[in-house]
Computed example of a mutant assay.
Amino acid sequence: MRKLTLFSILCFSSLIFAGVHPSKPWVEINYPQDKEKRWWDDAWWKEGRLSVPQNYQVSMQGVTYMDGDVEVEAYLFKPTKPGKYLPILFQHGRRGLDSWTLPRIKRLAARGFIVLAPNMFGTYLKPPFPNKHTPAYDHHVAKGIDILLERDDIIGNKVCTVAHTRGGYMTLKALVTHKKQEDKVACYVGYYPHWQDPDGSEVEQVYQYAPEIDKLKVPTLVFIGEYEQYQRLRPIFLATKVLKEKGVDVELIVYPGVGRGFDFRPEHVRTFADDLAAKDANQRTADFVRKHLQ
């Protein structure tokens, strides 16, 4: 047995006196999903059972719809198996719809949904990654919800919206400002959503969330990565807290070890953690949409 030195005894005693228990970690990180154990699965842990997600072959086609005098370009994803399916409107962010982001919409439709994805930049022949926000996009999203509900191959009379980054702001405006949450939208899903006016001041970007959040009423599910940028994290944490206090059914999932874009990162930078987060978020989104549309 190693002999304890006076120095080691004094150090150990000082830790106890300071209230630091040697068996506890130096840093404890608590995420919302850990506090309520929403990820826990007794069927898996005790019986070894895994839930098998629904899988569908999916087709993709370019479509358009009119919003006033603007012909909005979009993509429609749907299972190739004939039948009616639950409808989702997916809204892209600053990257737009390209070879990285289109497959992530296909992966959503493959759970058994019809997904309409408006292409804002293609509609206006604009390059991706704009700095300024175009308010007309918000109205095009709202109109897209109407168009989706006119289809005869959908189930029900409401849609859910799914969006990432700035698309989260566009769908928020469509639901609140253009009032689609009143009778046409059943739920809202945001992947690392930009919950602030993109044209707002630095102070607004860092310390405040968009005022429309205070009027959001539909069940809401939000995904972010642990390494998301601070000016995105803070408004999301604050906004979800406020929504919960207002009685809105809101859930925030924070994935350890990943940052923004975990759901569409390309092969040369994608990590195992990205894959796990993307698969988990995909299935949680599918379950959440079915819960509120059926």
Rank of each mutant, 00 (worst) to 15 (best):
T123K: 11
G122P: 07
H139Y: 14
G144C: 06
G122M: 06
P128K: 15
I154N: 07
A142F: 07
K143T: 12
P118K: 13
D153F: 14
P130A: 11
P118Y: 12
K126F: 12
F129E: 10
D138K: 04
K143W: 01
A136G: 04
L149D: 03
Y137F: 14
I154W: 06
I145T: 03
R151W: 07
I114D: 01
P118I: 13
N131E: 15
P127F: 13
I145Y: 02
P127I: 12
P118W: 10
R151L: 13
I147L: 08
I114P: 01
P135Y: 09
P118E: 13
H139I: 14
L125E: 08
V141L: 04
L116C: 08
R151H: 09
D146K: 04
Y124G: 01
L116G: 07
K126T: 08
V141K: 06
K132S: 12
V115S: 01
I145M: 04
I147M: 05
D146T: 09
L116Q: 12
P128T: 14
K143G: 00
N119H: 15
P127E: 15
P128Y: 14
N131G: 08
G122H: 11
G144P: 03
A142H: 09
G122K: 09
L116R: 13
P127W: 15
I154H: 01
P135N: 11
A142I: 07
Y137G: 01
Y137R: 01
I114Q: 05
T134L: 12
P130N: 09
I154A: 02
G122L: 03
H133S: 11
D152E: 13
G144L: 02
P127A: 08
L148V: 08
I114H: 06
V115E: 08
H140C: 07
K143V: 09
A117M: 07
Y137S: 07
A136D: 09
L116N: 11
N119Q: 10
G122S: 08
E150P: 05
A142N: 05
V115N: 04
I114V: 15
I154D: 02
K132P: 00
D138E: 11
F121A: 06
H133W: 13
A117R: 03
I114E: 02
N131L: 14
A117P: 05
D152M: 03
T134F: 10
D152I: 03
D146C: 02
L116V: 12
P135F: 09
L125Y: 14
D153R: 11
H139T: 07
I154C: 07
L116E: 10
D146S: 13
D138A: 14
L125P: 00
G122T: 03
Y137N: 12
F121T: 05
D153Y: 07
A136T: 09
N131M: 14
T134P: 00
F129T: 01
T123F: 05
V141G: 00
N119W: 15
I145G: 06
I154S: 02
